Amino acid sequence: MKITNPDPELLQAALDGKLPAVEALLALIQPGVFQLAVRMLGNRDDAADATQEILLRVVTHLGSFRGESAFSTWVYQVARNQLLTAVTRSREHPELSLEDLQSRLGQGLAFTEQLQAEALRMGLHAPAQMPGPEEAVAAREMAVSCTQSMLMAMDRDQRLAYLLDVLFGLEGEQAAAVLEISPAAYRKRLQRARDALNTHMGGTCSYISADAPCRCEKQLPARRAHPGPAHYIPLKLVDSERPSVAAHFEQLKRLGDAMAVFRGFPAFAVPEQLVANLRAVLAATP
Rank of each mutant, 00 (worst) to 15 (best):
33 V>E: 08
261 V>G: 07
61 H>E: 12
129 Q>H: 06
111 F>V: 03
141 E>Y: 03
98 L>V: 05
150 M>R: 00
39 R>H: 10
272 E>G: 11
222 A>E: 11
207 Y>Q: 08
169 G>W: 02
26 L>T: 10
10 L>M: 15
257 D>P: 00
228 G>D: 09
228 G>M: 01
83 L>T: 07
182 S>D: 11
254 R>S: 13
50 A>I: 06
62 L>G: 03
62 L>W: 06
128 A>G: 12
87 V>Q: 15
48 A>R: 12
110 A>Y: 01
26 L>H: 02
85 T>W: 01
68 E>Q: 12
257 D>Y: 08
243 P>F: 05
78 V>W: 03
262 F>P: 01
141 E>L: 06
81 N>Q: 10
194 R>G: 05
269 A>H: 13
67 G>K: 07
239 D>K: 10
194 R>K: 15
222 A>I: 00
84 L>P: 01
187 R>N: 10
45 D>I: 12
14 A>C: 07
244 S>R: 08
193 A>F: 09
251 Q>A: 14
213 P>G: 08
210 A>P: 00
198 N>M: 12
37 A>D: 04
125 H>F: 04
12 Q>W: 06
108 G>I: 02
86 A>M: 11
131 P>T: 08
69 S>Y: 00
216 C>V: 01
267 A>Q: 12
11 L>R: 02
87 V>A: 14
100 D>A: 11
64 S>N: 08
277 N>M: 03
240 S>V: 07
132 G>L: 09
24 A>C: 01
183 P>Y: 11
116 Q>L: 09
99 E>W: 01
56 L>D: 09
174 Q>N: 10
136 A>R: 14
116 Q>K: 13
19 L>Y: 00
229 P>T: 07
277 N>W: 06
9 E>V: 13
214 C>T: 06
138 A>C: 02
110 A>M: 08
204 T>W: 04
78 V>M: 11
112 T>H: 14
155 D>C: 08
286 P>H: 05
260 A>G: 04
10 L>V: 05
216 C>H: 10
159 R>F: 07
23 E>L: 12
283 A>T: 05
2 K>D: 12
20 P>S: 03
152 M>Y: 00
221 P>L: 00
25 L>N: 07
267 A>R: 12
122 M>S: 15
223 R>I: 15
33 V>Q: 08
112 T>A: 13
200 H>D: 06
128 A>E: 14
264 G>K: 02
181 I>M: 14
200 H>V: 04
213 P>Y: 05
68 E>L: 04
38 V>K: 07
178 V>I: 09
175 A>D: 08
284 A>I: 00
94 P>C: 12
63 G>R: 09
89 R>N: 07
253 K>Y: 02
73 T>P: 01
261 V>Y: 03
15 L>A: 05
87 V>C: 03
94 P>S: 14
245 V>K: 03
28 L>V: 02
234 P>S: 05
43 N>L: 00
24 A>N: 14
195 D>T: 14
33 V>S: 08
172 G>Q: 12
276 A>L: 11
86 A>E: 12
71 F>R: 04
285 T>Q: 14
259 M>R: 09
46 D>P: 01
273 Q>W: 01
161 A>H: 06
184 A>E: 14
195 D>S: 13
116 Q>I: 03
261 V>K: 04
